[in-house]
Amino acid sequence: MQEEIVLGVYREKIDKYLIKNFIEDENLYNIILDNISSMERHIAEENKSFKQIIPYLFIKCNDEYLVYRRTKKQTEGRLHEKLSLGIGGHINPIDTESHNIITGGLERELIEELGLNTNDSLKFIGFINDDSNEVGKVHLGVVFKMEIDNKIDDVVEKQKMTLDWYYIDQIYTDIDRFETWSQILFRNLISTEK
């Protein structure tokens, strides 16, 4: 099996932006696009000087948010059984064929995981950086939001995830069961949404 190649940016290029967990500076988006590099995933997962770029989409339908639980069949063992507000994954070289490698990677992941086409309804929100744990130290989330009219109730990769819909108060109640990126997203943005 061929080693997965992931795209990211060397930390030195973006380090001055990584002083907060939730970053809203749009300049960082273009800096990432201008400095994108590739690395074998098994090396990138241990290389703290390289931030793998992860498009990370949260989906809202009326007053509820899509929540998924990562099963033990997912690749990233450090996140097994955690709840997540964000759907997404690594950017790969195939995504360079898109008009924008970040949104191209996200669109590919959504089709693979949910069978969902974004139809250009993505709204860029900001970035999540979490250097408090081993997963966060080597990843940077690029956060997008999408509002839909009808709930999604099924996934393509059933062995890797299960879906549910939560109101804000339910997320708050279960916040400790969520991965840290979802906690950061919730505390900095979702908990204040109307």
Rank of each mutant, 00 (worst) to 15 (best):
D25S: 03
V135C: 03
V155C: 08
L33P: 01
V9M: 01
L83S: 02
V156R: 06
D153Y: 11
M1I: 10
E147Y: 15
K20P: 04
Y172S: 13
L140T: 02
E4Q: 13
G89C: 03
I19P: 01
E147W: 13
E179I: 15
L66P: 11
Q170F: 06
L122S: 06
D34K: 04
I184M: 12
E3D: 05
D25T: 00
I111V: 15
H42L: 09
Q74H: 11
G141H: 07
L28D: 00
R78F: 14
G105E: 13
I23F: 01
H80E: 12
Y56W: 06
G86N: 01
K60Y: 12
G141R: 10
L79V: 04
E193A: 06
T96Q: 08
E179G: 12
T180K: 14
L83D: 06
K158S: 04
E26L: 05
Y68V: 01
N119S: 11
G136N: 06
G8E: 12
N47Q: 02
I184F: 15
L85E: 08
E40A: 12
K60I: 10
Q159C: 01
E40F: 15
M146Q: 15
E40P: 09
K60G: 09
I31E: 07
I111P: 08
I19V: 12
F186V: 03
R78T: 11
F127P: 08
V67M: 00
N92W: 07
N21F: 10
T192Q: 08
L185Y: 05
I171P: 03
Q74R: 10
S37W: 08
Y172A: 08
T71D: 08
I53S: 02
E3P: 03
E45N: 14
N21M: 11
T173Y: 15
D95R: 06
V67W: 04
G141P: 00
S98W: 09
R11Y: 03
T173Q: 09
C61W: 11
K60Q: 14
E109H: 14
S49D: 09
S49A: 08
T180R: 13
I148H: 13
D149R: 07
I190Q: 03
I5D: 06
L106E: 13
K145I: 02
Y167I: 12
T103P: 14
L33G: 08
E26I: 09
G8S: 07
